[in-house]
Design a protein around this nucleic acid. Sequence first.
DNA 1: TAAAAATACTCCATAGGTATTTTAT
DNA 2: ATAAAATACCTATGGAGTATTTTTA
Lengths: 301, 301
Amino acid sequence: MLELRHLRYFVAVAEELNFSRAADRLHMAQPPLSAAIRQLEQELGTELLLRTTREVRLTEAGSAFLDGARRTLTELDRARSDAQRAAAGEIGQLRIGFSWSARFETLPALGRTFRASHPDVSLLTEEMWNARMLPALRSGAIDLAVALCPEVAGEFSYLLLRSEPVVALLAQSHPLAARGEIELRSLAEEGFLMFPRELAPRLYEFMTGLCRRAGFEPIVRGESFHSGWELQILADVDVVALAPASVARDLPEGLAAVVIADPADQLDTAIVWRKDDPSPANRAFRSAAERAVGEHLLEAR
Amino acid sequence: MLELRHLRYFVAVAEELNFSRAADRLHMAQPPLSAAIRQLEQELGTELLLRTTREVRLTEAGSAFLDGARRTLTELDRARSDAQRAAAGEIGQLRIGFSWSARFETLPALGRTFRASHPDVSLLTEEMWNARMLPALRSGAIDLAVALCPEVAGEFSYLLLRSEPVVALLAQSHPLAARGEIELRSLAEEGFLMFPRELAPRLYEFMTGLCRRAGFEPIVRGESFHSGWELQILADVDVVALAPASVARDLPEGLAAVVIADPADQLDTAIVWRKDDPSPANRAFRSAAERAVGEHLLEAR
DNA sequence: TAAAAATACTCCATAGGTATTTTAT
DNA sequence: ATAAAATACCTATGGAGTATTTTTA
């Protein structure tokens, strides 16, 4: 059976064109080297070397095989280093599901931090609603979730990335739009635009809970957020919506964001992963995230 | 030490994701297979497989290494087949030195015949004078010579490809140009254009010998053939030259070729090679040449 | 005749086998 | 309870060593 040994020996002999010197180089005796080469030739069914006691020459087959043997050994080295780099999380890919709101500040900052240390891991990101994230994580469709107000069950772990104030999004023409900050209760009479509850139950409860604690039940005038939050509608129809502050970074024309006063009402964004996920790239991403948190790279600016 | 055995075993296990089934497939027992994989992991310094008694999964490193291992094994197969094809003369290259006169019929016909059976051998051809051919063959600068009237010494073998009549090349305006055939002695009073004797001594002797047997000593009026035979000069100056008949296939404007009558005065073209040349492609070319001779593909048309 | 490959043989490392235990579902 | 991997132990093939012979330039 052909083994790498044969290739290594053959390359040495082909380079030295001298069995004794090649044996030296390989730290072995000359007879077993000769035997191994003979075995290789038998295995291939063709002469690779023309030996006389005075010179050793490559045959055409030998010269062709030398190229191939070198390529094979190189390929093996690459395989080895790929495996080791993959084990260190330095190559591979990560599929990341994220909440729409993470698009503005959190995800870009995470990406920058991670890419700086792991340039050869490709990040495949997909926006999705919270309700899809856990099943996607569970099934392995994604490796990590970057979620706003995530629901986290037992089989998952998470790391809090940032907390940010809630803002009310409303038409610039609205009387309250000019204010820097408002009390939530001043919106008690407004119509609210919400998303379908089943897309992110915990976030939905958080927002209606805010209103209730502010002393009113929100009047839900529509449920129309589908892919992302289609905000333009807020300016057209006369309704308001609640969102994390970072959304204000990229508002459509004619919309304003006003911070809700109560500093206790913060919206959390976290990364979530399967506790038992052994992927080194995953671990590496998490520690990059920790680093980013530690360096305050994820805070609102 | 890492061996191909490890790669073969690992690929089998990674494909079956089951040590026992993989062991079956490899016609071996399960424990030594487990041992080999453990050894491989130790060699690489990283886990490749996550085993429980119920399932075997690839780690990231394992998945990366699987790709690399497959590539390595593929590369080895290619190396093996390259060696075997090279041994059969099916790949490689042949450097061929040829006489100018072979360019017209002999070399193209040889090329066609050889390429039909050996499309992956590249032919590198170079025109040269006979005097350069033997040293070039001896030093290995060329593998084969296709020579007109070759001088063949002991260390070389040769195969006669064709014999062809001698023609006289002369200006179309020459009184004899209209004749289909002439006696050489009718050129006794003409001036001859020759090449420097040292470029092809045997051919030179052959041609002057022809004249002497026809009863005259040729009047050499110039020695001006350098690269190829610059024939245009024959039409300009009023001299004649002797050449093999195939040259008539591609005469410059204003020149005519007239066959010399004596059918015994034939010019031979042969391929010449080093007796001890072991190159399979070389052998293959020679047998293609024999085939071409047998099928009369090299004869004048 | 001298340098280098081939041959003859010896030995032991280890690949691979069998029997059994452990483990996780 | 069971299927599958790990462990323990054994065997023998063959890879590598030493001493010697053969070859050819």
